[in-house]
Simulated scan of single mutants.
Amino acid sequence: MNNLIKLPGVKSMTGLSKSSIYTMMRKGLFPKSIVIADRAVAWIEAEIQEWIENKVSSSRRG
């Protein structure tokens, strides 16, 4: 089952600001949010975790 997290949780997990998240989403560099209700979006937690793991892996390579 996919857990959904709202923007404050995404910011906390990644250390990114709201504007950085949305800029990176537009550029295809960050997982896209999904609409969960009128004027409400969330992210799939597993996708955010995977993005973080990829960032860690790429920074360790070198």
Rank of each mutant, 00 (worst) to 15 (best):
M1Q: 01
N2M: 12
N3G: 03
L4P: 03
L4D: 11
L4F: 14
K6L: 08
K6N: 00
L7R: 03
P8C: 05
P8G: 07
G9T: 04
S12W: 11
S12Y: 09
T14K: 00
T14S: 09
L16P: 01
K18D: 01
K18A: 07
S19F: 03
S19T: 12
S19E: 14
S20A: 15
S20N: 12
Y22S: 06
T23D: 10
M24I: 02
M24P: 01
M25P: 02
M25E: 15
M25D: 10
R26C: 05
R26W: 00
G28S: 15
G28I: 08
L29S: 12
L29M: 13
L29A: 13
F30K: 13
P31R: 00
K32C: 13
K32M: 13
K32V: 11
K32H: 13
S33V: 04
S33K: 05
V35E: 15
V35A: 13
I36F: 02
I36C: 01
A37G: 09
A37W: 13
A37K: 15
A37M: 06
A37D: 15
R39V: 09
R39M: 06
R39S: 10
A40Q: 15
A40P: 00
A40L: 12
A40N: 10
V41H: 04
V41F: 02
A42Q: 04
A42N: 03
A42H: 05
A42S: 08
I44Q: 05
I44G: 00
I44V: 15
E45Y: 06
E45G: 01
E45A: 11
A46I: 05
E50I: 04
I52Y: 04
E53A: 12
E53I: 05
N54G: 02
N54M: 07
N54C: 03
K55A: 11
S59K: 11
S59V: 07
S59L: 13
R60L: 14
R61Q: 11
